[in-house]
């Protein structure tokens, strides 16, 4: 009977039985081992869920980066700040709703998503037009310039909103949790996973079926050829950068639900996002997807063994080693087009 409960409490009860008749001891022992394997199974499931959840966050943060890097060969160090801007957009939307239309609070995120996309996307296009387009063919300089930009954006937000964390609330449908077997699943994590997959699917469809998507893929594969076929590569670059930044903004909306909204929000994601992109390979969104979930799950399975920090270090070291084997990531473009 106790065995059927099968959880931690039951285990404590059974192991704490102490002196009992042999028969009871034996039954208890078998119950203990069965519960233990049951628990081990559930803890695997729990880790896998945490891993998927982390993976979805990583994917959301990295996917915009993957697009700009893939299409333009540009590393945008200010990508994290686009995420941060998305999160602050959510904050502002909620503030307005709180003070003016409290009834709409549950819809605040739905309002924030397109707004964040527009805000971050607009700033992205602005950055591309004023800075990045002068630096094409000089990826290392782009990296430095965008880093400088990230400092400016962080400081700007710090000046405008203060250096401390800002409160962003969860709408009712994102609060709370439900039990699935032995594990607890919080609604916000679940929604973020679904949201990420939806964003991914929409993006994939956009790349496949729209004219901009076709042009972006053409530029990714062979910029010179695309240019000579009459594709306005500079327009594609600007829109790509806007799109990548916009998605970062959306990511910010989602992250505002699970993380502190502070000027440093972006920084904490940027290195992880790089790792995802480098690991997954460039020019293929599926690579980013696989990369994000692999890293997420690997991270969560290493954590209980090695501890959170050591696990993270181990992942970084593994990626550094992995890069040696596959310098262009898991899903790399091959052939002459690779080297311009």
């Amino acid at each position: 009977m106790v065995k059927a409960r099968g959880d931690q409490e039951a285990l404590a009860l059974l192991t704490g039985l102490g002196d009992q008749p042999p028969l009871v001891t034996k039954a208890a022992a078998s119950a203990v081992s069965s519960i233990q394997s049951n628990l081990a199974m559930w803890s695997m499931v729990q880790n896998a869920w945490y891993g998927l959840s982390l993976g979805s966050v990583l994917l959301l943060a990295a996917i915009g980066l993957a697009i700009t890097f893939g299409v333009m060969g540009v590393i945008n160090m200010a990508h994290g700040e686009m995420v941060m801007l998305g999160a602050y957009t959510t904050f502002v939307v909620q503030e307005v709703i709180r003070t003016r239309y409290p009834a709409l609070f549950d819809y605040s995120l739905l309002i924030a998503v397109p707004l964040a996309f527009l805000v971050a996307g607009f700033i992205g296009v602005l950055i591309e037009r004023t800075i990045i387009r002068f630096l094409y063919g000089r990826p290392l300089e782009t990296l430095l310039a965008t880093w400088g930009l990230s400092l400016v954006l962080q400081q700007a937000v710090r000046t405008a909103f203060g250096p401390t964390n800002r409160e962003v609330g969860n709408p009712s449908w994102m609060s709370g949790a439900f039990e699935l077997g032995q594990i607890t699943i919080t609604y916000n994590r679940l929604w973020i996973l679904c949201f990420t997959l939806a964003v991914f699917a929409i993006l994939l469809a956009m790349l496949r079926y729209t004219a901009l998507g076709l042009e972006m893929r053409a530029v990714t594969q062979n910029r010179r050829m695309a240019a000579s076929m009459g594709i306005a590569t500079s327009r594609v670059d600007a829109l790509t950068f806007g799109l990548g930044s916009g998605i970062a903004g959306i990511a910010g909306v989602a992250l505002s639900q699970i993380d502190n909204v502070s000027p440093n929000l972006g920084q904490s994601y940027i290195i992880d996002s790089f790792m995802v992109v480098v690991f997954g390979g460039v020019g293929n969104l599926w690579g980013t997807l696989v990369g994000a979930f692999t890293l997420g799950i690997a991270n969560k399975f290493l954590e209980p063994v090695a501890g959170a920090v050591l696990g993270k270090i181990a992942i970084l070291v593994l990626i550094i080693l992995f890069i040696q084997k596959r310098p262009r990531g898991l899903f790399a473009l091959k052939g002459r087009a690779v080297e311009a």
């Binding site: 002068f134 430095l144 880093w147 400088g148 930009l149 400092l151 400016v152 400081q155 700007a156």
Partner: peptide, 16 residues
């Protein structure tokens, strides 16, 4: 408070 603005601008202006 403006140092980070200056540093950031330095990155951008020097590369550009």
């Amino acid at each position: 408070p403006y140092w980070l603005f200056m540093l950031g601008a330095l990155f951008i202006l020097v590369t550009l």
